[in-house]
Amino acid sequence: MSRHANTVAVVTGAGHGIGRAIAQRLASEGAAIAVAEINEHWGGETVERLRSAGATAHFVRTDITEFGSIQDGFAEAAAALGPITLLVNNAAFTDAGNLAGISLEAWHKEIDVNLNGTYHCIRAILPGMRERGGGAIVNISSVNALRYFGNPSYSAAKAGIINLTQSVASEFGRDGIRCNAICPGSVRTDNITWTIRQQKDPRVFQKLARWYPLGRVGEPEDIAKAVAFLGSDEAAYITGAVLPVDGGLTAGMNVMIDEFILESRND
């Protein structure tokens, strides 16, 4: 039997990039997928890909900054696919600003989408999971929550997701609900931020790779595999965990080691 044969999963922001890879991975392991996405074209495209591969999939348009939108979308997903057993909070936004120059509007938007949006989804899913006696939630945070790599508003929101993860795990474990967080490093995707950076410097991913002990940036599938594990019964005794999926970035500073420590030993 496939690992997720009995899973009904909602994946937010599943219209492209990491979210689409998560949806495809879970579907390949037997899950029925609700593609929760604000962009109807992207969401519909993901559903078409999933169905073409033989999966059960349903699109629900959602705006995670609006709690009512989430309630309605999740209710539609459950009516179409059955009770939701796995929530993957992937939808995110960043404006890549800095503290000196960021506007109040930009700060509030990043907090609203990344942190409040994650909370809205969790708040909407908990009553049903509690009533049925269990479920799993996987939140996509970031290495920016663990170290400062720029993007202060995004980083603050992603750090908040870690504490929110631990809060849910602590309060609702007795209800059979597990909640874990994944912290990706740099991931090669087609989102607008990376597209702009690549237009400025086509070698941006090669330059980033030198910071990573594994010698490369991540691929969306790297994150999807971790989600599939944490959302499965194989992780039945794991909750409140924060898992860096970052090629070793937060384990040590490769550039410092290579350019300072090792060079000094050779002097």
Rank of each mutant, 00 (worst) to 15 (best):
F229L: 12
L230A: 07
D175W: 07
I182P: 13
G231N: 04
E221L: 09
S232W: 03
Q198N: 04
W194G: 10
Q199H: 11
K225C: 00
R216S: 06
L230H: 07
E221N: 08
G231L: 11
T189G: 13
L214F: 09
T195H: 12
F229Y: 15
A224C: 05
R197M: 15
D201Q: 09
R178S: 07
W211E: 11
C179F: 12
I223C: 04
G185L: 03
V217F: 01
A224S: 06
R210P: 00
L208R: 12
F229T: 06
A235Q: 07
G240R: 07
F205D: 08
E219C: 00
Q199G: 08
R210Y: 02
N180Q: 07
G215T: 02
P184A: 02
Q199W: 10
I196H: 07
W211Q: 10
C183K: 03
E219P: 00
R174S: 13
Q199T: 13
K207I: 00
T195L: 14
R210D: 08
D190F: 03
Q206D: 14
V187F: 11
R178A: 12
I182C: 09
R210E: 09
T195A: 15
A224N: 03
R216I: 03
Y237H: 13
Q198M: 12
D190H: 13
L208M: 14
T193F: 15
D201I: 01
D222F: 01
P184W: 10
C179A: 15
S186P: 13
R174N: 02
K225S: 09
R178G: 08
T239H: 10
R197W: 14
T195Y: 01
I192Q: 15
T239R: 08
L230T: 06
D222M: 03
W211S: 09
R188M: 14
P213T: 01
I177H: 06
Q198S: 13
R178V: 07
W194H: 15
G185V: 08
R216Q: 06
G240K: 09
R216T: 05
D175H: 14
G218F: 03
D233A: 15
T193C: 01
E219T: 00
R203E: 14
E234W: 10
D190C: 03
N180L: 10
I196L: 12
P202R: 10
S232P: 07
Q206L: 07
V204H: 06
D201C: 04
F205P: 04
R216N: 05
P220C: 04
V187Y: 12
P213L: 01
W211V: 00
A181N: 09
A181K: 11
A226T: 12
S186A: 15
N191F: 12
